[in-house]
Design a protein around this nucleic acid. Structure first.
Length: 287
DNA sequence: AATGACTCCTGTGCGC
DNA sequence: TGCGCACAGGAGTCAT
């Protein structure tokens, strides 16, 4: 589902619409998503002022005035809806698969919609956010200084798994998912089946740049809109039009278009996930 | 410790 | 038009 650029886009929209506002009504419409909602969720949200937001990997943290942060993960199919509250009833009527809703005194309605229910909601003390079990072992933020060819090389040292699989591991680097891993490896010219521990320093540098560039481009485009994902106001991100390999099996990659005998983008399955690459640009040297 | 299979759940798109 | 099947952006848990 939503990967770093989509989560960043959602967080920014929440920031713009909700920061400084006070939650006056909460509706918890089922007891759980992947895991149970925290105890007394509605009571712990109601009356709280929303002070600030933070993104960590694919998680959104919404800091509340009482000292707790709402931790939100969108899973595969999670969406956030931000709208004007109808304001007549205590809570607004739910849309399909809307599992959690709140309304602010200022008249904004927040809804968490997640058909597959792979998402996650928790509450954590704000000053202990990074100690939360789901955040504690998470790797560096790819757009921050802690992520470099040196740190990536260290994280990959001795690892035999294919680089494609390792980049999906949030302990190695946070925020990447299937789409942006495929796109970053293409931009770096690295075959997805290369063993992670075999990458040379030049390849690591190219990979770090490629990851940063593809994420920045996607954030600037408002993320990628798929079937299940749109920005909270319903607007569509448009980075899906810039995909160079993802979902493009059999089509020529931008580098090869027009080349005689170009096999086009290949699709294989790795660790159960579809993987797209250009065999000409991404050579399988150490695969 | 690292790896790969399995699991959660619903919606969609395809071939028949 | 309807049915069954494969597949979809994630990631925790379990067995090896």
């Amino acid at each position: 589902m939503p990967e770093l650029p989509e989560v960043e886009t959602v967080m920014r929209a929440m920031q713009a619409r909700l920061e400084g506002q006070t939650i006056v009504a909460v509706d918890v419409r089922r007891p759980d998503l992947r895991r149970p909602f925290p105890a007394n969720l509605a009571r712990r949200l109601k009356g709280q002022r929303i002070d600030s937001f933070r993104r960590r990997g694919k998680y959104i943290l919404m800091r509340l005035s009482g000292g707790e942060s709402l931790l939100l993960h969108l899973g595969m199919s999670g969406r956030v809806m931000l709208a004007e509250s109808c304001g007549t009833a205590e809570v607004d009527a739910p849309v399909k698969h809307e599992h959690l809703m709140f309304r602010t005194r200022e008249g904004v309605r927040f809804g968490l919609i997640d058909p597959r229910r792979f998402g996650m909601v928790d509450l954590v003390s704000t000053h202990k956010e990074d100690e939360h079990s789901l955040l504690a072992s998470m790797g560096p933020e790819p757009l921050e200084a802690g992520f470099s060819a040196a740190t990536l090389g260290k994280a990959l040292a001795g690892r035999n798994s294919p680089i494609k699989t390792l980049l999906l591991d949030q302990k190695i680097v946070s925020g990447l998912g299937n789409i942006y891993v495929c796109e970053a490896l293409y931009r770096a010219g690295i075959h997805p089946q290369c063993h992670g521990g075999d990458l040379k320093s030049g390849e690591l540098k190219r990979l770090v740049s490629a990851i940063r560039n593809v994420l920045c481009d996607a954030v600037a485009a408002g993320g990628s809109s798929l079937k299940d994902y749109a920005q909270p106001d319903g607007q569509l991100g448009y980075f899906q039009h810039s995909w160079q390999v993802y979902g493009r099996a059999g089509k020529p990659c931008p580098d090869c278009s027009g080349d005689i005998g170009c096999p086009g983008v290949q699709s294989i399955v790795m660790a159960g996930r579809s993987t797209f690459f250009c065999p000409k640009r991404q050579k399988a040297d150490s695969a």
